[in-house]
Structures are given as structure tokens and as C-alpha cells.
């Protein structure tokens, strides 16, 4: 990397911006745009909620202990993913397979819990266009925000499954694991704001 920088002119190509792989740089670009997607959702939600006279108290609608466990599961899966990336950097194939499998398990548990939560919300009368608790937009934002986040988790589970299978066959690259990890951490990071802004405030 440094030898390339010294032997080639900046204009002849072959240099990586910021000294990182193009896959990683493109994942970061994706993360910036995806962060703006959720910033738009949460901004719109905050806008609607501040202007609403009868926004329901989330603690009256959702089970807070259940949501806290969901959050713990996602944070824990993010920690195991960080370990998987560290294991990949250290060329420890067995550890990569073990930690990605754990992360995958966390993702599946989180999705299952979200499915349970949706089932209860719908069972209690929550709809995108109305709900029994108050402002109709409450239901819209619930499905929009948790739906988009859940879809991200689902996609992450698919990516992790591929990484885990590749690790089992010893066909993984540390770069590939790291890029998958960036995506997974970002999904966890978004949940921090959804949990705080939508459920806790």
C-alpha cells in the first residue's frame, strides 16, 4: 500500500481512497445514505409527534421488558460480530465460524421477537391507518420504522448466513467479514435511535 503510493503518481490510478478496500469504502457510503433514510423517518416521526395532541404513550402499548430483551439481543449480536471480525483479521477460521453463527442466532432471535411484537400490535387493533390508542400516525410510524429496520435485519441475517457458510468452507476473506460486520453494526446503531426515540421517549 505505501510502496504503491511512493512508486506511482496519484494520477495513474491504483491508489485506494483513504487507504481502504473499495468494498469497505462503498459499504461506508451505503451506511451514510442509509443513515439519512432513517434520519428522515425519525425526523418525520418527531415532527408528527411534536405536533400531535393525542400521541399514545409507548409504554402503555408495548411491553418494555420484552423490548429491552430485544435490544440486549441485538447489542449482544453486535458484540459477537465485532469478535468475528477480529477473528477474521487473526486468520482464526474456527472462531470466525463460531462468532458469525452466534451473531446469526442473535439476528434470528431478534426477528422472531419482532414478529411476535407485530402480531400483538396487530392483534390489539394496531393498523397503519389507525389504532385504538390515539393518533392514527402512531401506527403508521410503527410499521414504517420497525418494518424498515426489520427488513435490514433480515437482509443482515442473509449476509451473515453467507459469511458463516463461507467460513465453514474456509472461503472467507477478512475484508468480506469486516464489510458484513460494518453493515450489522450499523443496523444495531439504527436500533439505538429507534429504541430511544420511538419506544422510550
Amino acid at each position: 500500500m505505501t510502496t504503491m503510493a511512493t512508486t506511482e503518481s496519484r494520477w495513474t490510478g491504483g491508489l485506494s481512497p483513504f487507504g481502504m478496500s473499495w468494498q469497505k469504502l462503498m459499504m461506508w457510503w451505503f451506511i451514510v445514505t442509509d443513515a439519512l433514510l432513517f434520519a428522515g423517518f425519525l425526523g418525520g416521526y418527531g415532527f408528527s409527534r411534536l405536533g400531535s395532541a393525542n400521541w399514545p404513550a409507548p409504554s402503555k402499548v408495548f411491553s418494555m421488558p420484552f423490548l429491552t430483551v430485544m435490544t440486549f439481543v441485538l447489542i449482544s449480536s453486535s458484540a459477537t460480530m465485532a469478535c468475528a471480525v477480529a477473528a477474521a483479521k487473526a486468520r482464526d477460521r474456527a472462531a470466525v465460524a463460531r462468532f458469525t453463527a452466534l451473531t446469526l442466532l442473535g439476528g434470528v432471535i431478534f426477528l422472531s421477537m419482532q414478529a411476535w411484537e407485530w402480531a400483538h400490535f396487530i392483534g390489539d387493533g394496531g393498523r397503519p391507518a389507525g389504532n385504538p390508542w390515539g393518533d392514527a400516525r402512531f401506527g403508521s410510524y410503527f410499521f414504517l420504522v420497525t418494518g424498515f429496520h426489520g427488513t435490514h435485519v433480515l437482509l443482515g441475517v442473509v449476509i451473515l448466513l453467507i459469511v458463516a457458510l463461507r467460513a465453514r468452507k474456509d472461503r472467507y476473506t477478512d475484508n468480506g467479514v469486516e464489510v458484513a460486520g460494518l453493515y450489522w453494526h450499523f443496523v444495531d446503531l439504527v436500533w439505538v435511535f429507534i429504541f430511544g426515540c420511538f419506544y422510550l421517549i
Binding site: M1, S16, M20, Q23, K24, K89, A90, R91, T173, N175
Partner: peptide, 21 residues
């Protein structure tokens, strides 16, 4: 994810044991 030519995939900087702590 099959491409392994990125600069970060150079094995020279890999630590002997990962630090999970």
C-alpha cells in the same frame, strides 16, 4: 465478497491472537 485484492486484506498486519476483551 469474493474479491481479495483490497489493501486491507494484506496479511502482514494480522495479530497473532485476536483481542476480544
Amino acid at each position: 465478497m469474493t474479491n481479495d485484492t483490497g489493501p486491507t486484506s494484506a496479511p502482514s498486519t494480522a495479530p497473532a491472537t485476536p483481542h476480544y476483551g
